[in-house]
Simulated assay, not measured.
Amino acid sequence: MSATDARADVELLAAAAGGSEHAFRALYRRHVRPVFWLAHGLLGVRTDAEDATQDTFVVAWRKLPELELAGDSLLPWLVTVCRYQCANRIRRQRREREHSAGPADDALPGTVDVEKQVVDAQLVERILAEVAVMSPLDQSIFRLCAADGYAYAAAAEALGVSHGVVRNRLSRIRTRVRTAVEEERA
């Protein structure tokens, strides 16, 4: 960052701390890309990175009146806030994933719909037959995400592939299974 940019940051920061939304927008436009790419690098999911970036700038807006920069640029402070936002998001997602498989519900229905059970069993058999002819990686992705409830990132880590591979393949798997089931019903 040049000395002119750093001075502009200090001036924009002072104006934004005084309540200028225009100055804050200018700071946002100046720093949103590096903050987003940091968040994306840490989280690996575009929507999560967008949320973390937004959270970072919400914190910045709230803290502006009391903020004192260590240097001339706001970016190092934003990077620190963004890292905390990403760490909090990762912890929250891990906690949700750990708690998503709660204890089984002991409340059983009063009656059993045999016809529905037969239809459901046939649907499950058709889905499993379609998955059985897929590649071993696709079968693993289906098992982890669709059957075991893994998030994309957790499945990617377990399989040693990228988040994007899991997301894209699972989308194709779902389309393939949906098409096979609809063809059989027709």
Score class of each variant (00 low, 15 high):
Gln85Glu: 08
Leu137Lys: 04
Leu64Trp: 02
Ala147Cys: 06
Ile127His: 04
Ile90Trp: 02
Gly110Leu: 14
Arg97Asp: 10
Pro34Ala: 13
Leu43Pro: 08
Pro34Ile: 11
Trp61Ile: 12
Ala101Gln: 11
Asp120Cys: 11
Pro65Tyr: 06
Phe142Leu: 06
Leu74Gln: 02
Ala107His: 05
Glu50Ser: 12
Asp148Tyr: 15
Thr47Met: 11
Ala104Gly: 03
Ala132Lys: 05
Gln139Glu: 12
Glu66Gln: 07
Gly110Asp: 14
Leu43Phe: 07
Trp77Arg: 03
Glu125Asp: 10
His40Val: 03
Ala52Asn: 11
Leu64Pro: 04
Asp120Tyr: 04
Glu66Phe: 06
Ala60Cys: 14
Arg62Ile: 13
Arg62Phe: 10
Gly102Ser: 11
Ser135Val: 00
Arg30Ser: 03
Tyr28Thr: 04
Leu75Ile: 07
Gly110Phe: 07
Asp55Gln: 09
Val32Asn: 00
Leu137Tyr: 01
Gly44His: 08
Asp148Phe: 10
Phe36Ile: 04
Ala52Tyr: 06
Thr53Ile: 15
Gln117Arg: 14
Ala52Gln: 06
Arg89Asn: 04
Trp77Ala: 12
Leu67Glu: 01
Asp138Arg: 10
Val133Glu: 04
Val112His: 07
Thr47Val: 12
Ser100Gln: 07
Val124Pro: 00
Leu123Ile: 13
Ile90Arg: 09
Gln122Cys: 15
Ala70Ile: 13
Asp55Ser: 12
Glu98Ala: 13
Tyr84Ser: 06
His40Trp: 13
Ala101Glu: 09
Ala52Thr: 09
Asp55Leu: 14
Ala87His: 10
Val59Ala: 08
Leu43Asn: 09
Ala52Val: 13
Glu96Trp: 11
Asp106Met: 00
Glu115Asn: 03
Gln54Ile: 08
Ala87Cys: 09
Ala146Pro: 01
Leu78Trp: 01
Thr111Gly: 05
Arg30Asp: 02
Glu68Thr: 15
Cys86Leu: 11
Val32Ala: 03
Leu108Ile: 05
Asp55Ile: 07
Val35Leu: 08
Ala121Ile: 03
Ile127Gly: 04
Leu128Ile: 04
Ala147Asp: 05
Cys86Ile: 02
Pro76Tyr: 06
Glu130Arg: 15
Glu68Asp: 09
Arg83Cys: 02
Leu42His: 06
Thr53Gly: 12
Ala129Ile: 15
Ala39His: 02
Glu66Trp: 08
Asp48Thr: 12
Ala26Cys: 04
Gln139Ala: 15
Leu144Thr: 01
Gln139Met: 08
Leu75Met: 00
Lys116Trp: 05
Glu66Lys: 11
Thr53Phe: 11
Arg94Ile: 12
Gln117Tyr: 12
Arg92Ile: 05
